[in-house]
Write a protein that binds this DNA or RNA. Structure first.
Lengths: 377, 377
DNA sequence: CAGCGTGACTGAAGCGCTTCAGAATGTCCA
DNA sequence: TGGACATTCTGAAGCGCTTCAGTCACGCTG
């Protein structure tokens, strides 16, 4: 069992009787040696149990690791409890995988982002930050390391590339829809956004200081359509399903009860649906509920959820293309319209802007999907 | 913008006027130099914009990367659509994080596991395989590289450590429960297991050849309790929610319809619940449904799901401890009873066995959780 | 005062690979 | 026949860091 030291390139070279460079070429540049010799090298390598060039040594020599650091806001289970993340990362992974890049997950710690130390020590060629709170230390660490950066659903950082969605517009669409249905008493349900650490009721002014850009934007979108309406704001205590449920009960327990609840994610909306069922409140009879994202579970719920659709797959794909472009030394130019539309979205390609040569921002379009969870007041 | 080459250890050393070794020590072994000098080194490093030792170079020198390769069966979105994975990986990550290890995700390709090439090129100290089909190439690649290996919910590989759950017992508990309720006509719903690529009805003999150990074990557990009962077997076409729903319709459409459906995961059971609702079939009035895993959504469904509970967090935690132990040169000894019970499970610590000095196997215990989805025939 | 333990720092040998500028040999055509 | 090219392979210089065996100076002890 105590195997000898693993064989290295040199061992193979010695065994074959060629130079180290030749063995390296056998793996990396087959055109640099005769097919015959190459076969022999590979055969001897197999005999010796040589598994191919050591990834770390190769990385040092080439200064590319083949990994993408994914900076998350929270723990893995919390982060992945929202299907939106899996969908987006999956699409991202599919784009970068053919180029040999894998995802290195850096879950968030207590302060809403991975510890700087983890970022500094991560073996990665580039960082992707997903919906981090503004100003977390992890982003500074990315900069000090000089890593290229792509941010998703976050404010644009100078020098980085960004992809997001039309948050404000989407929120406005949902609010307008409910308003047109005659609703005048609204609940707004925000995800945990560090305003009120324990969660709870919020004033609009407080919410405007949320640590997350999408929270701020969506809020603005809602409120812009709700002039002269009663509005109750609630922030969830955490990102877990339990805290969402707590918040849902609080919102539905408000007196007088809102006739419509605008939720900043489908997860929150589904929690409101669950709470309403438990309380015996009819949806959409007594209360209408709208979500945001149009993640898959939105269409399976009962009633199926009215929600703001954003193309999560396209978002991930664009992020992936930005990653590749930055890796190629590009300046984070926004992927061409061709690739965006190839993303399968039927709507217009969304707004896009390149601010200077060093940063770029893309947004996927949104649209309202009306299903069964909303009805007349 | 065109910054000079990033500073290295040597640059800092030169700037301070000390040797390279001293700067290295400033970062890695503070006790090796005077506090005064160390401060100076760190200060100069900051001025120079040096972000600390390059992770790759450090890895090459120390031969530790600080990453754990996680081998998945499917794409990310599919894999993470089951909360069981997030929960387990989260628990695993929490155990290894304090030691500076992050997770490198290697999603599965067409053949039910990551391509060997990805495994060979992954920068990782150890591999964790999660519920891979038997005999995928990725596992061979792990061996050729000589990477330590921990498998979760898979057959034990020689030289690896393993953690799983008492699949057979759990399945038997569920089947017995329904049988005792008077059911005699059963449906069994298996996840995609490569027997019938397109999904569909299966004979017991076919199912016994499933590519996944847990499928085989759970099946055996069910069937062992169902003597002289009618049994219809169905395999889902894929792992997506859509294919689960299709399978659920097929099972509920069988004539005569089963009065009880045993599902090999909660995801499948929830799909059956959804299908039943759409078909107007009362649960548990007309059909009883049981799941497996007791993932969080099991308790939120309506009716809440009767299911086999396994402590997913404990499973992840044990896996994490096995990882650390293997990394420490341990032989994959099963974590002590202390750590297992610390996992928060109230039941007995499950069965554990160490086969030889080079491999070990742990199983988390299971128990039946009876909720609202099962009732008398 | 010789001898010695100690704290602080350094030199240099790797870690395993890539890559680039040649060297060696063979080929082709004028 | 001889020079211009290809083709195939090699030597050696890194990539940026860790680490181990010292070296050096200093203060202490007997």
């Amino acid at each position: 069992m105590t195997r000898r030291r693993r064989p290295t390139l040199d061992d193979v070279a010695d065994a074959v009787g060629v130079s180290r460079a030749t063995v390296s070429n056998a793996y990396n540049r087959p055109d640099q040696l005769s097919a015959r010799l190459r076969d022999q090298v590979l055969r001897v390598a197999a005999e010796l149990g040589y598994a191919g060039p050591d990834p770390t040594a190769r990385s040092l020599a080439t200064s590319r690791t083949g990994a993408i650091a994914v900076l998350l806001d929270t723990s893995l289970s919390t982060a992945f409890s929202d299907p939106a993340l899996s969908l987006t990362l999956d699409a991202l992974a599919r784009v970068v995988d053919p180029r040999g890049h894998a995802l290195l997950l850096l879950p968030g710690g207590a302060h809403g982002g991975p510890p700087a130390e983890r970022v500094l020590g991560a073996q990665a060629d580039i960082a992707v930050a997903y919906s981090l709170a503004d100003g977390v230390a992890a982003l500074d660490a990315v900069r000090t390391r000089g890593l290229p950066l792509v941010v998703i659903d976050q404010p644009l950082v100078p020098g980085a590339a960004r992809v997001g969605c039309q948050d404000r517009l989407g929120a406005a669409l949902a609010a307008r829809h409910l308003r047109e249905l005659g609703h005048r008493r609204f609940g707004i349900f925000a995800a945990h956004s560090h305003v009120r650490p324990g969660g709870g009721a919020l004033t609009a002014a407080e919410a405007a200081g949320a640590a997350f850009r999408d929270t701020r934007e969506r809020l603005a979108g809602y409120l812009g359509e709700l002039d002269s309406c009663e509005v109750v704001l609630h922030e969830a205590a955490g990102l877990s399903a339990e805290s969402a449920l707590d918040g849902a009960f609080a919102l539905l327990g408000a007196v007088p009860r809102p006739t419509a609840v605008l939720c900043m994610s489908d997860q929150l909306a589904l929690a409101v649906l669950a709470a309403a069922r438990q309380l015996g409140i009819a949806v959409p009879g007594e209360v209408s509920v709208a979500g945001f994202d149009d993640s898959p579970p939105a269409s399976w719920s009962s009633p199926p959820l009215t929600t703001v659709r954003q193309d999560l797959v396209a978002k991930g794909r664009i992020a992936g293309e930005l990653v590749l472009s930055l890796l190629d030394g590009g300046s984070g130019a926004v992927p061409t319209a061709g690739s965006v539309s190839a993303a399968g979205s039927m709507s217009a390609a969304g707004s896009v802007s390149a601010a200077g040569s060093a940063s770029a921002s893309a947004e996927v379009p949104v649209s309202l999907v009306v299903r069964g969870s909303t009805g007349p007041a």
